[in-house]
Computed example of a mutant assay.
Amino acid sequence: MILHVLPLLAFTTFAGFAAGAYAVDAVCGNGREAKTPWLFPLVCVVPLGIGLCGTLAHLGQPLRFMNGMANPASGISQESYWAIALGIVIVVDLVISWRGGKTARVAASWRGRRLRLPCLS
């Protein structure tokens, strides 16, 4: 009876977890001091992908996804648009962090200058 809601629950839970964790890391920047700064964006993109798979499961057939995305006024398409946009941002951050070197240092220094908010220790 409630099984048709479980894929949307998976999307909301996993995508919300990924977005919240990435936002907290963007504000606090604690993951930039790690030896492997590419690991956190990778960990964030996995639950986001699981959540988007939950959206596909909710529609029943994956081919309905394209039909659902054609209606930008529907809630499921808006959630999917924002999740895909967040996924693109996380993947770009993953590539920059994975490459390391000067690019990652410039991105980290820009982020540090932009937001100077105190974080909980």
Rank of each mutant, 00 (worst) to 15 (best):
Leu3Asp: 08
His4Gln: 08
His4Cys: 06
Leu6Thr: 04
Leu8Phe: 07
Leu9Arg: 06
Leu9Trp: 11
Leu9Pro: 00
Ala10Asp: 00
Phe11Tyr: 11
Ala15Pro: 06
Gly16Ile: 01
Gly16Leu: 01
Phe17Val: 10
Phe17Tyr: 13
Ala21Ile: 02
Tyr22Gly: 09
Tyr22His: 08
Ala23Val: 11
Ala23Trp: 08
Ala23Gly: 12
Cys28Gly: 08
Gly29Pro: 08
Asn30Leu: 13
Gly31Cys: 04
Arg32Tyr: 03
Glu33Gly: 15
Ala34Phe: 03
Ala34Thr: 13
Lys35Cys: 01
Lys35Arg: 05
Lys35Tyr: 02
Thr36Arg: 07
Phe40Asp: 02
Phe40Leu: 14
Pro41Met: 10
Cys44Ala: 14
Val45Gly: 06
Val45Cys: 05
Val45His: 04
Val45Met: 14
Val46Arg: 00
Pro47Val: 08
Gly51Ile: 01
Leu52Tyr: 04
Gly54Pro: 06
Ala57Thr: 04
Ala57Cys: 07
His58Leu: 05
Gln61Cys: 03
Pro62Cys: 15
Leu63Glu: 15
Leu63Ser: 14
Phe65Tyr: 10
Met66Asp: 05
Asn67Val: 10
Gly68His: 03
Gly68Cys: 03
Ala70Val: 00
Pro72Gln: 05
Pro72Asn: 09
Ala73His: 09
Ser74Leu: 09
Gly75Leu: 13
Gln78Glu: 05
Ser80Arg: 01
Tyr81Arg: 10
Ala83Leu: 09
Ala83Cys: 12
Ile84Arg: 01
Leu86Val: 11
Val92Tyr: 05
Asp93Gly: 13
Leu94Glu: 08
Leu94Phe: 15
Ile96Ala: 10
Ser97Leu: 13
Trp98Met: 11
Trp98His: 14
Trp98Pro: 00
Lys102Asp: 09
Arg105Trp: 04
Val106Pro: 02
Ala107Asn: 07
Ser109Met: 12
Ser109Val: 02
Arg111Ser: 14
Arg111Gly: 03
Arg114Ser: 14
Leu115Ile: 07
Leu115Asn: 04
Arg116His: 04
Arg116Ala: 09
Leu117Asn: 10
Leu117Tyr: 13
Pro118Glu: 12
Pro118Asp: 12
Cys119Ala: 03
Cys119Phe: 04
Cys119Ile: 01
